[in-house]
Design a protein around this nucleic acid. Structure first.
Lengths: 248, 248
DNA sequence: CGGTAAGTTGAGTAGAGTCAAATTTGGTGG
DNA sequence: CCACCAAATTTGACTCTACTCAACTTACCG
């Protein structure tokens, strides 16, 4: 089982798929060159824990490909996901010694890591990095607050519908289609991971997915492939306050 | 009822009580002078809504004194608090047109407001502001994630204990005593606001406070004044994973 | 001293959790 | 290609925590 994940695919920053969305997005050629000096790639296979809460962190970095989750755990094992990391998302906190959360690879993951101290030094001198990181952190904070509303006040059915709506909306953005009529995507998470995301048990997740299927809000092929025939219907089920997220 | 709250107490930045903790913390004398050009004070009385979600925002700012809360609401009125703003906390998001959350004064509040466009321009040229805002935003994100664990996975009793522990810890920091043996403080929120903070109903909040009182975990004088005879006992009740918050 | 808002307590209910069993699926080795 | 295994998922039966609705108490303000 310990076979190494392969193909770390070190690249030139210029060809990096997350070049324009990651923490380096605002950097100019010269700054990228500096980053290049302190960066290295690491790969992890699905299921592997990249970082344990409390571990010393000697790097920060960006997810280049794959999906990872941030989790927190109570003493008795109850687990709550507190972040879902997609390509270009940032991992770690400059200035912090020890990891605050577990980071677990959901799929195979490639990370672009920066040695922490050089990165911190560079942040001091290179406003572009801090500016972009601020932007990204504010976005994450907004996402976290939306998530808090879900965790604190939504029913199980609404939680599932909301999660599906998030995935559908993201997928629509990637396809540059607007999420309106039919939307199709794959669930990136197991039922258990969805439960940890939503603050439910995996049984409840399963039951509510079945209920949404029974009520024709979604169709399933296999366990993971979802078709939403009417996205507005799904949004109603999600219970959100109309609009669907203002960003401006 | 519409009497204006009084004493906006405009001040010199040099004498400002939040000078060293707010978004201006890293600014030098010359930068403070610039900020002074674009700032003004506003006061709000307890209970007043400072900002409605969706409103156009022409300012950002800092809480100078008092307490405010950020809330989100579902169509049917279910409300979740997503931020509790104490003196020095920042309100608003540079670059955003419309407010994303309701901001409600819990007590009488004084805010130091900066006109948005000049502030944004200044951020471009003055790294100190963005740097400090990044630090503060990362802190808020950590707090939000702790909060997500509470909302998603803790029992009602644990939620109450956790909230009391947060208040007790903050109080200990202010008194520069370490939160260990006996801790005393006042609840800043009504039962209803606590419920919105914790994702509970106000009846459940009341019942669980009564239960903690019955079990001698806390003592109450009046409805608001709390004595925690044994802080470690309270932390056990909060169910947290030992330590109690690493920052480094 | 009354009136109102805040808080407490009680009784009954419902939604999500727990424990357990059945089913499906994807991968493996023959 | 097929049988088999382990993991993921679904479903059922039952329980229990927190919610709802309602009555009552307390504290505060004019």
């Amino acid at each position: 089982m310990l076979k190494d994940a392969h193909d770390p695919t070190p690249r030139e920053c210029g060809e990096c798929p997350i070049r324009h969305r990651a923490v380096c997005a605002r950097c100019d050629a010269q700054e990228l060159e500096q980053l290049d000096q302190i960066k290295y790639y690491r790969s992890f296979e699905a299921g592997r824990t990249l970082i344990w809460a409390g571990d010393r962190m000697d790097f920060v970095g960006s997810v280049v490909s794959g999906i990872a989750m941030l989790t927190q755990t109570l003493e008795d094992g109850r687990t709550q996901m507190v972040g879902l990391l997609l390509p270009s998302d940032f991992v770690g906190r400059p200035g912090r010694e020890k990891a605050a959360y577990n980071v677990v690879a959901v799929s195979d993951v490639v990370m672009c890591c920066f040695r922490k101290h050089p990165f911190e030094n560079m942040m001091e001198k290179t406003p572009h990095i801090g500016q972009r990181l601020l932007e990204m952190t504010l976005d994450e904070l907004d996402a976290a607050r939306e998530w808090m509303l879900l965790l604190g006040r939504k029913t199980a059915r609404e939680k599932i519908a909301s999660f599906l709506a998030i995935l559908g909306r993201r997928n629509a953005v990637l396809n540059m289609s607007k999420a309106a009529g039919q939307v199709v995507f794959d669930l990136p998470l197991t039922r258990e991971a969805m439960a940890d995301y939503l603050g439910l048990t995996l049984e409840t997740v399963s039951r509510q997915i079945s209920a949404l299927k029974r009520d024709q809000v979604i169709h399933l092929e296999g366990k993971r492939h979802v078709t939403v025939p009417d996205f507005d219907r799904l949004l109603e089920e999600a219970g959100d306050d109309s609009d669907g997220g203002m960003l401006a």
